[in-house]
Simulated scan of single mutants.
Amino acid sequence: MDLRIFTEPQQGASYETLLTVAKATEDLGFDAFFRSDHYLKMGDVDGLPGPTDAWITLAGLARETSRIRLGTLMTAATFRLPGVLAIEVAQVDRMSGGRVELGLGAGWYEEEHKAYGIPFPKEKFGRLEEQLAIVTGLWSTPAGKTFSHHGTHYQLTDAPALVKPAQDRLPVLIGGKGASRTPKLTARYADEFNMPFGSLEETREQFGRVREAAREIGRDPQELVYSNALVACVGKDDAEVTRRAAAIGRDAAELRENGLAGTPAEVVEKIGRFAEAGASRFYLQILDLDDLDHLELISSQVQSQLG
């Protein structure tokens, strides 16, 4: 079971804070550092000092780390043109020596688009599908050849399809709870399917839909990685769990039900249930980025038991 650290910097984090957490992620033996791609805070937080751009952040971290994987859950397709996104991600992959992964989603938070003057189209899923086709098409075009795409939303003509990622195949992640289009896109374009903030039963159902969609196009469902993302709130005892839950404005009982919360033994047991449903990777959403002791506890008392 891979454990990855997943951050939400729009809630309030400087680049320096993210660098500290990323280095702790590497030092403590976690598999990867991921971040959201948002420009506006959510809920009753001040969001200070303000937003950091996902791919600029990851470019910096690519040069400041040496082992961990780096990526997004999820880059918003509304934020960037697909040709530009392909260049950005490939460049960061080269800067990291081949450690980058791209989570790509349709974009959903209308208020941040209004706040920063970003168009928020009504029809987003078709744009996402074209972006996936373009980004993966640019990366897979043989050297010396060109790539063209003439779709409803994007037009590319004779793109040189450069720069290439350092990896022969840069992993693409797709996630969500959609019952039809999401599994089909995953089967066609993704290397990993991520179930965000879902229950065990929802996870079983959605993993099953993704597997069936893969079989329908003749793809082996075992080629895909299946993962979950849940809020993490781990404490050495009940009092510490309660304290950490309060620090992020949540109730400990609610997090035990809907997140990955409790003592290390409780958390290991819950991860085991998701593993039985097919998950082989967890993204631990860490909301208090100043609490590095939290990461150390998860590393020493949870990760150490998972093998």
Rank of each mutant, 00 (worst) to 15 (best):
residue 261 A to H: 01
residue 157 T to F: 10
residue 184 K to M: 15
residue 193 F to P: 07
residue 277 A to E: 02
residue 290 D to Y: 02
residue 186 T to G: 07
residue 197 F to S: 09
residue 292 L to E: 02
residue 196 P to L: 10
residue 202 E to S: 13
residue 261 A to R: 00
residue 224 L to D: 04
residue 261 A to G: 01
residue 245 A to F: 02
residue 236 K to R: 15
residue 276 E to I: 01
residue 218 G to H: 00
residue 285 Q to S: 06
residue 152 T to R: 13
residue 217 I to Y: 03
residue 212 E to V: 04
residue 165 P to F: 12
residue 206 Q to N: 15
residue 288 D to S: 14
residue 162 L to H: 09
residue 264 P to W: 11
residue 275 A to Y: 02
residue 198 G to E: 06
residue 185 L to I: 15
residue 268 V to W: 03
residue 256 R to G: 08
residue 232 A to K: 06
residue 164 K to H: 08
residue 241 V to Y: 14
residue 265 A to C: 01
residue 233 C to P: 00
residue 278 G to R: 12
residue 159 A to C: 14
residue 157 T to M: 11
residue 258 N to L: 12
residue 224 L to F: 08
residue 212 E to A: 13
residue 176 G to D: 10
residue 243 R to C: 03
residue 292 L to I: 11
residue 171 P to N: 02
residue 253 A to Y: 03
residue 169 R to H: 12
residue 240 E to T: 09
residue 238 D to N: 15
residue 222 Q to E: 13
residue 245 A to Y: 01
residue 257 E to H: 14
residue 209 R to V: 03
residue 176 G to A: 08
residue 197 F to I: 11
residue 187 A to I: 11
residue 209 R to Y: 14
residue 224 L to P: 12
residue 188 R to D: 10
residue 174 I to K: 13
residue 210 V to K: 11
residue 273 R to Y: 08
residue 228 N to F: 03
residue 157 T to K: 11
residue 166 A to C: 14
residue 200 L to Q: 14
residue 255 L to K: 11
residue 162 L to R: 08
residue 194 N to G: 04
residue 207 F to R: 04
residue 171 P to E: 01
residue 284 L to E: 05
residue 193 F to L: 04
residue 214 A to Y: 01
residue 190 A to Q: 05
residue 176 G to L: 10
residue 249 G to T: 05
residue 206 Q to P: 10
residue 252 A to C: 12
residue 253 A to H: 05
residue 259 G to S: 09
residue 259 G to N: 09
residue 190 A to L: 07
residue 282 F to A: 01
residue 157 T to E: 15
residue 254 E to L: 15
residue 151 G to I: 06
residue 191 D to R: 10
residue 224 L to H: 06
residue 267 V to Y: 01
residue 265 A to S: 08
residue 194 N to R: 04
residue 252 A to Q: 12
residue 236 K to H: 14
residue 172 V to F: 11
residue 232 A to I: 13
residue 281 R to V: 07
residue 226 Y to G: 02
residue 220 D to Y: 03
residue 179 A to G: 05
residue 217 I to H: 05
residue 184 K to W: 13
residue 250 R to D: 05
residue 199 S to L: 12
residue 278 G to I: 03
residue 265 A to T: 07
residue 208 G to N: 12
residue 206 Q to R: 14
residue 240 E to L: 13
residue 214 A to S: 14
residue 271 I to H: 09
residue 286 I to N: 01
residue 278 G to T: 06
residue 288 D to Q: 13
residue 286 I to T: 04
residue 246 A to I: 07
residue 241 V to C: 12
residue 193 F to Q: 09
residue 289 L to C: 04
residue 232 A to G: 07
residue 182 T to H: 01
residue 292 L to F: 12
residue 169 R to M: 10
residue 243 R to F: 07
residue 256 R to L: 08
residue 162 L to Q: 13
residue 227 S to K: 00
residue 250 R to S: 08
residue 210 V to F: 14
residue 189 Y to F: 15
residue 231 V to L: 09
residue 196 P to Q: 08
residue 183 P to T: 13
residue 280 S to Y: 06
residue 244 R to H: 00
residue 201 E to N: 03
residue 192 E to K: 12
residue 182 T to L: 00
residue 151 G to M: 06
residue 177 K to V: 05
residue 282 F to E: 01
residue 164 K to W: 13
residue 239 A to T: 10
residue 251 D to H: 14
residue 169 R to C: 11
residue 173 L to A: 11
residue 246 A to H: 05
residue 282 F to L: 02
residue 279 A to R: 08
residue 244 R to M: 04
